[in-house]
Amino acid sequence: MKKNEVAMSAHTVNISETERWLSSIAGAAMILSGLKQRSVGGALRAASGAALLTRGASGYCPAYASVGRSYSRIYDTREALGGRCGVHVDESITINRPAADVWAIWRDFESLPNYIPSLKSVTRTDATRFHWEAIGPGRRSIAWDAEILNEIPNELIAWRTIGEPDVVSAGSVRFVQSKGRGDTQVHVRLQYEPAGGKSTAAIAWLFGKEPGQLIRAGLRRFKAIIETGEAPTTAGQAHGKRSLLHYAQRSHA
C-alpha cells in the first residue's frame, strides 16, 4: 500500500472537452473582470478565475478526482483513481494461470464472496451495477452499490460506488499476463473517501489500520483457491492447552 500517493494526478484528464472549454472561458473572464476592479474582492475573483483556467487548460479537477469521478473522453479509470485525496491501496500478486482465466473468475462478481471472507454477498442489480454487502467483526454489516466504469476483457475491470453508499470508493483491477509465461500479475488499486462520519468509521473497521493488509490477504486467498482449489488454514486444528494471552490476542485480531 502506498499512502498519500500522488500518482499521475497532476497530469491526468478527468474533465470532458466541453467542460474544459467552459471552464477556461469562465476562468479567463473572471481574471479580466477581477483585475479591472483593483480591490480585494477583485483579486479573489481573479484567483478563482485562475483556478478555473488551470482546470480547463489541464483538464484535471482535484475535486472530481477525490471521489474517483471522471467525465473525460479518455475515460480511463486508472486515472480516476489518481486523486490526491483519500486513502490509496496498491497491491499486486502473481497467479499461476493465464489472464483470460483469472479475469473471468474476477468478473463473476457474485462469486467473489467465496474468495474474500469479509464479503457477505454481491448481487447484480442491472447490467453494470451490483449491490455489495460485507460483514466484519461484531457482525455489523455495511452495504454499497457499485457500477462497473470500465471493462477491457482479460485486461481491466474498474468500478466506483454510486448513490449514497456507506463507503465512497473507486477501484480497478488490472490483469497483465507475463511475457512468455502462463501466469498473470493482478494489480489492485483502490481509493476510498476519508470524508468523515459514517463512511470513514465503516471503512476503518472494514480495512483496519492497514487497508492494504486486508486486500493483500484477500488476494492471497484468491490466488490459493485458483491455484490449489482451497485456501490454506489451521482454524479448527488440534492443539494443547492455550494460554489466556492467546485468547486475548485472538479477540483483538
Binding site: T228, E230, A238
Partner: peptide, 15 residues
C-alpha cells in the same frame, strides 16, 4: 514441553 490430552484432529480442507 508436556504431553497432553486433547481432541483428535479433523479434516479441515478437501485435500
Amino acid at each position: 514441553v508436556r504431553v497432553e490430552q486433547m481432541p483428535d484432529p479433523k479434516i479441515l480442507n478437501p485435500r
